[in-house]
């Protein structure tokens, strides 16, 4: 790679007491990309963000953000980053506008510039009608947008979003996603943490699945999906149907073993997608006198990746 990565970590570790929160994390995030840390609660995602944004010191290893070491040159890192989400907040007793102006001034803008910037961001995030109300009267979605606006006062080259849509309703989540996509178009490097697979799928270039402080898988959403298996055909047969015989008929079409899945009369057949496969399967079953209630093709989702990876971790623990 000719260009150095915008975020780079090597052996990054942090533990609280005796419990390791993050152990031996190696990341390379190129400039302008969206990187997603995906994992269940307690996986260490937030700790990674807090280390990279200089809020906590790593116990071991090093990390560089925009070329500056987080431990040795925290002040330089803080000039390049924006942080928003679970743990960075705004003052509930101030108005939305006052919050943005204050943070602008703390970012060393002069007052008129801070005011202009606040007005611009309020308009951009559709917060103008509520701009002069105290933040404690805001809805969850409005507060998140204000929070994001606060982290964009000076144009950060690196943006950390810690669970930006946790607890939002579906419409607010879609608004948030659109906002985030636009930021990335501007060339901002984004590190996103989320518990939502769909969010990672929608936004991320690279997804890193974390569990118990370790990386369990990393790759593009497409790679990860491919790693847990290909397309499957899901069949639902009426109660009392001859499942064994059906499985035998399906076997020639399958790319792997035919499995019985949850619920009575349900079969899962791994297949290699090709034109006409569904009609072939139905024709064969029909010829054998086996009726079919329902049939569907399913492509692997990040859900499958997530369950396959984090489930294995739980079983080992």
């Amino acid at each position: 790679m000719r260009q150095p990565p915008m975020i780079e970590t090597c052996g990054l570790a942090k533990s609280f007491g005796r419990a390791p929160a993050v152990s031996g994390l190696d990341l390379q995030i190129p400039a302008g990309s969206t990187f997603c840390l995906l994992g269940p609660n307690g996986a260490g995602k937030t700790t990674v963000v807090r280390m990279l944004s200089t809020l906590v010191r790593p116990d071991a290893g090093w990390a560089r953000v925009a070329g500056h070491d987080v431990a040795a040159d925290g002040a330089a890192v803080r000039r390049e980053i924006g942080l928003s989400g679970q743990y960075a907040s705004v003052d509930e007793f101030l108005t939305g506008r006052a919050n943005l102006v204050m943070i602008g001034e703390l970012c060393r803008l002069r007052r008129p510039a801070a005011r202009r910037r606040a007005a611009e961001l309020l308009a951009h995030f559709e917060l103008e009608p509520a701009a002069d109300r105290p933040v404690r009267t805001y809805s969850g979605g409005m507060r998140r947008r204000l929070d994001l606006a606060a982290s964009l006062i000076t144009r950060p080259r690196v943006l950390f979003l810690d669970e930006p849509t946790t607890g939002l309703d579906p419409r607010s989540r879609l608004v948030m996603w659109d906002v985030i996509r636009r930021l990335v178009l501007d060339g901002t490097t984004l590190l996103l943490t989320t518990q939502y697979l769909e969010e990672a799928d929608q936004l991320a270039d690279v997804v890193c699945v974390m569990d118990s402080g370790r990386v369990t898988a990393q790759g593009t959403p497409a790679d990860l999906k491919a790693s847990v298996g290909g397309t499957r055909l899901l069949l639902s047969l009426p109660p009392g149907a001859a499942l064994g015989r059906a499985a035998a008929i399906l076997a020639p079409h399958a790319a792997g073993p035919v499995r019985l899945t949850g619920g009575p009369g349900r079969l899962e057949v791994p297949v290699v997608p090709r034109p006409g496969i569904v009609t072939d399967v139905v024709k064969d079953l029909d010829a054998a006198g086996i009726p079919v209630d329902d049939i569907s093709m399913r492509r692997p989702s990040l859900d499958d990746v997530f369950h396959a990876l984090t489930g294995a971790g739980e079983a080992a623990a």
């Binding site: 060393r108 803008l109 510039a113 951009h124 659109d178 636009r182």
Partner: peptide, 22 residues
């Protein structure tokens, strides 16, 4: 259908962000 929110948002420019103090 969810409207395309991004296209409705006013353009966001970063020009007003001040240069670092001299």
């Amino acid at each position: 259908m969810i409207p395309d929110v991004a296209s409705q948002l006013p353009a966001l420019s970063f020009e007003t962000a001040a240069p670092p103090p001299a």
